[in-house]
């Protein structure tokens, strides 16, 4: 392996609850992801894929194990340090879009820049650029209620992109969309990936997973198997370590 992986999980476990009610969601996950990969995480509900995504998104910490993100051991960071990591390197796209209601598209996209303390004019300019990237510049002043589901998800993607993140985390990004819109979104994500951004996506739809370069199957809190995406992407070479 020529390059240091951007994300490295070693022996990750996660237990919810305590004592008799304790539930072990992850039982020792090992995974490494290279820069520029497009990874689809699949698995039945309860398989640990969401928990893994939460940990990868620095929203949650593992009970044990090592999670290295860009060389930093995330499991030993506190809440605020993880926030700073998210703000700097991560972009999120959610199943429910999670845009702020009664707030225009451009203001939604500006939100992450707000916390980076950028100036108003720069914020606006960057947000408009991001909207341009998702083809929604003309809708900049519309509120989510005035946009279709596909458009809302594209605004959400623009919001994730506006900070030029290293990694884009997408949790069921097509879960609330019809198949036509879903394919549009997936094609767009592939395009972004082609521009060099690493994408991690949770999905339960095999057709959507096909867009990824790498597909990671979870089962019972463990990585079951890893396969290459059906589309003939040049494979970036992620794999299980050990």
């Amino acid at each position: 392996m020529s390059e240091q992986p951007i994300i490295e999980l070693k022996g990750i476990t996660k237990t919810f609850g305590e004592g008799a009610a304790a539930f072990q969601a992850l039982k020792g996950v090992d995974l490494s992801i290279k820069r520029g990969d497009f990874v689809a995480v699949m698995g039945p509900s309860g398989s640990g894929k969401s928990t893994t995504m939460n940990i990868l998104g620095c929203l949650d910490v593992p009970t044990s194990g090592v999670f290295k993100f860009l060389g930093t051991e995330v499991q030993s960071l506190n809440k605020d340090q993880r926030s700073l990591l998210r703000r700097r390197y991560l972009g999120f796209v959610f199943q429910g879009f999670n845009l702020l209601a009664r707030t225009t598209a451009v203001e939604n996209v500006e939100l992450p820049l707000l916390y980076r303390g950028e100036h108003k004019a720069e914020r606006r300019e960057a947000a408009l650029r991001a909207l341009d990237r998702v083809g929604l510049r003309p809708w900049a002043d519309h509120t989510p209620a005035e946009l279709s589901g596909g458009q809302q998800q594209r605004v959400a993607i623009a919001r994730a992109l506006v900070t030029d993140p290293e990694v884009l985390l997408a949790d069921e990004p097509t879960g609330n969309l019809d198949s036509e819109r879903s394919i549009e979104i997936m094609e767009f994500l592939s395009e972004l990936n082609g521009q060099g951004i690493t994408i991690l996506m949770v999905t339960h739809e095999p057709e959507m997973a096909e867009f990824a370069k790498t597909i990671v199957h979870f089962k019972d809190g463990l990585v079951e198997r890893i396969e290459n995406g059906a589309r003939n992407h040049a494979h970036a070479g992620s794999g299980v370590n050990g």
């Binding site: 809440k79 926030s83 998210r86 703000r87 999120f92 939100l111 992450p112 916390y115």
Partner: peptide
Amino acid sequence: TREIGIRLAIGALAKE
């Protein structure tokens, strides 16, 4: 609550 969740996920600090 959701809005707060979005803000935190995006990287807002607790104090913000």
